[in-house]
Amino acid sequence: MSLPFVDLGLDQIAIAFGFVVVTIGMSWLFGFGLERQFTVASIRVFIQLLVLGYVLKYIFALESHWALLFLVECMVLLAAVEAARRQEERSTGLVISLLISLNVAVTLVLLFLFGGVFQGDPLHLPHYFIPLAGMVIGNAANGAALAVHRLAADIRSHRGEIEAALALGASPQRAIQPYVRATVRTALIPSINTMMLTGLVQIPGIMGGMLMAGGAPMAAARYQMVIMYMLPCGVMGACLLTAFLFSRSYFSNREQLREM
């Protein structure tokens, strides 16, 4: 049985904007004070997704590896800057650490995905390549941001233990190893929780999208499995690499923990 795909026009988007009006109305009525923020956020959703739609249409039409890579690199850059912006201590070093980690994570995951799972050239599958890259980058950036936040806090609060390890001749990496472990664990817990509950409470993103686009439920479920297996790998890789690179900025060339 083939189910219909409902294409939406701008008039239908305008009707959907009724949800925004109702939400803003409730905020005003109950004094939540979220009217302005919600208005801005709703307008941003409209503009950002419209621009994304046009960009993807253009990139798909270009049929160029470079265009695909350029778009992915833009996504990585935006994700790294956003992840760094969420930290208390921001630095160029942090942005560079995030850029390297996200690039490595997304490259390795996509290589495995397109080389092993899809066994196809991303050029012929841009409609898979871009959304999947976006998912890996978004999740890895969230994980890395959480990792940096936790690691910075741990290094500050365990200065004594870290210096005690250094004083015994440990390398900086060995001295902060317990905190890197705790950090990666913390960053991975949301992914594991999501995996545990997937399909039980709500239909997950890509499966829902495929069903709405008229895809077969079993095919959609298989795609969702691939996504669920892929994402934690990207998150863990990005967290580990970010923690490794970022923690170097805490130590001098003579392996002394800098003052914070």
């Binding site: 004594g160 233990e161 004083a167 001749g169 440990a170 392996e255």
Partner: peptide, 24 residues
Amino acid sequence: VSSIPIRDLRREVGMVFQLPYLFD
């Protein structure tokens, strides 16, 4: 001491801190 590898120096000249700072 700046010409001695730092980890070798720390091993030669051990330090016991005022607080024990024991590891988990």
